[in-house]
Write a protein that binds this DNA or RNA. Structure first.
Lengths: 349, 349
DNA sequence: GTTAGCACTCTTTACCCTCGAGTGCTAATC
DNA sequence: GATTAGCACTCGAGGGTAAAGAGTGCTAAC
């Protein structure tokens, strides 16, 4: 069912109010708004419809309405207005990004920090692998009865080794077969491509026959890739969460912080996200503990090549329009910075 | 005034009880203990004395007594009994440290994580600079009217540059003088030595004459040293704080986490601490926001040379005996690990 | 189709009361 | 003289009740 013009207007007003106040919004409050010249009763009727359609919920009988994830999704897709940043905001961003010396990592760190300050949310940034290295071949070498060495070689000549303890016996034949299959599947892929789940899925169907072997090897393979990728995760404004009424409950704040403390998992989740500005709202997030968070990420580029990620995480009740505008401006700015600065001297080991 | 045997016994009992329960402990509770065969009234008299002497406090009139920082200090110095670790605990530690591949950084990370798990506190670990590099000379080169380049050269041949914007005009003469003074002061010092405050203090008195210059240069110098030092700070069990009754107050938990989020400052604080097992209790911590935390740190060694730090932070009400024993065992274990493993293959860029 | 009116629901807040734990002091006891 | 029993007093935690306030849903009127 298409929503009528009036329903959309009411929904938009509810979202706007709720995002601002964090209080369920009632019919009386809405009818007072000049752009909504209806009586509370009319609005109540519409709200009841919207609730039936799944756009609103009701904390309890005598409370106002609260937008659902579905409502936020509609809002982000269609209703939301992007906010033009004020001159001061633009200045703050530009200044903070360029005040720094020309160290790449520091610039990213500052970007995350300015992002969290302006949005009052928790921000993070993922630095890119400096050169997106491509896998060349994968080898498994027998060491003793229950140990093999996993060797990964990249086009750029980087070699990584890892000893793997096998829980099942193996034959050299099997080992070679697995090496070949892995090489066949991963050769030519970049490390970050190899790290995204979908490739693994395809791959695992290929080698059902020797899955016992693969189960020992694959986790180690993935971990070694992570080490090779060597991205850094910066996080800023972690304690902003305490200013958000939804998290005034200790146990909620706790699980939020607990989630963000798991850096490896978070990193993987961020790497897997598509490029461009991506908004995932509440239950759209695959992760259980993110069910009442929204995540907005964007990718930024260095030398035109695609790579790093930056974004914020906060309650589903967030200023989507404002935050996406800020992130857009910020990533544009980052992209320009890393384009002009032709060969910035990064510190080297 | 020396405390009588009996006062010490009572104080010890109060600390023991309070550490366990987090509740102010009253005279009746104490008199029930078999080792304290006195009536509540007697104990009350002793407690009043101990309060007058500053070892106990009183949340309110009708509450039991709570040990003060001074009491904890006495306890740590004299009363506390080190706890022999159980076999299981030893096993857990050993297993977790050695289960890992032989990557150095991972081992440290695991050490921090096992420490936080066993103590139920927040733990951290500082990895050492791989080789303790010694400063060779410092140079300041004029670039334009308001910019100079700071150059730091170490014995091992590492060179770091940093552009510094000057807020006051300078002459080449002054610049050379400053370079020489800095070189004179820092030559032969290790980077971590140079980073400790006391050296800076000495130094700044030397060059009062051109302090305008130094004020621009020094912060950049310190920051560059930090980059050169390149230690990593690992932190684990941040959310353990939520299990501690003292921090069931949101604003307290917040400031605790806020403090630990400032990684640079924390790192500097840890570097500055003396070696060996160091306990600082509550107000003994210089930092305002640490006034009701205790910090226990220990240093561990690689190849016999001194270097990294590991420790825990928690409320002043902590099991000092147990925690110090655990940290002691853990660092012993680390020291042995890094001694035996003659030339462990660390991942190289 | 819209609105006014009204009964009803539910949460929040304040307030009061009681209970229990613990103290400090004084007087009696060992 | 040190120790203990007794007692009045204080303070906080917990529970229950009542009133206030916000908002709904439904019905009937416009």
């Amino acid at each position: 069912m298409e929503l009528s013009e009036r329903k959309l207007k009411i929904l938009q007003a509810i979202i706007g109010d709720y995002v601002r106040t964090a209080e369920p919004v009632g019919s009386r409050t809405l009818s007072k708004k000049p752009e909504l010249g209806y009586s509370p009763a009319t609005i109540r009727n519409e709200m009841a419809d919207l609730e039936e359609l799944g756009y609103l919920t009701h904390p309890h009988t005598s409370a106002g309405r609260v937008p659902s994830d579905k409502a936020y999704r509609l809002y982000v897709n269609a209703l939301m207005e992007k906010k033009e940043l004020s001159k001061e905001e633009k200045n703050i961003i530009a200044e903070r990004l360029h005040s720094t010396t020309d160290e790449f990592e520091k610039t990213i760190e500052h970007a995350a920090s300015v992002l969290s300050e302006i949005t009052n949310l928790t921000s993070f940034a993922l630095t890119p692998k400096k050169n997106e290295d491509v896998l060349k071949f994968i080898n498994l070498l027998p060491v003793d009865e229950c140990t093999v060495v996993l060797m990964i070689v990249s086009e750029s000549g980087k070699v990584s080794n890892k000893a793997v303890h096998m829980s099942v016996p193996y034959t050299e034949e099997n080992l070679q077969l697995l090496s070949k299959t892995m090489t066949y599947n991963y050769k030519g892929k970049t490390i970050s491509q190899a790290l995204t789940n979908n490739i693994i899925a395809n791959f695992e169907t290929d080698i059902v026959a020797m899955s016992g072997l693969a189960e020992d090897v694959m986790p180690n393979f993935m971990r070694t890739l992570e080490d090779m990728l060597n991205v850094n995760l910066y996080m800023e404004g972690l304690t902003n969460i305490f200013d958000i009424p939804e998290y005034s409950d200790l146990s909620k704040a706790r699980s939020f912080i607990e989630m963000l403390s798991q850096k490896e998992e978070l990193t993987k989740k961020l790497i897997e996200r598509d490029d461009g500005i991506i908004v995932t709202i509440g239950e759209e997030n695959s992760d259980d503990i993110m069910q009442d968070c929204s995540l907005i990420t964007a990718s930024y580029h260095v030398d035109g090549k695609l790579v790093g990620k930056i974004g914020v995480i906060g309650p589903t009740r967030m200023k989507y329009g404002e935050v996406t505008s800020i992130i857009e401006y910020l990533t544009d700015n980052l992209n320009n910075t890393f384009k002009l600065e032709s060969g910035g001297n990064k510190e080297n080991e």
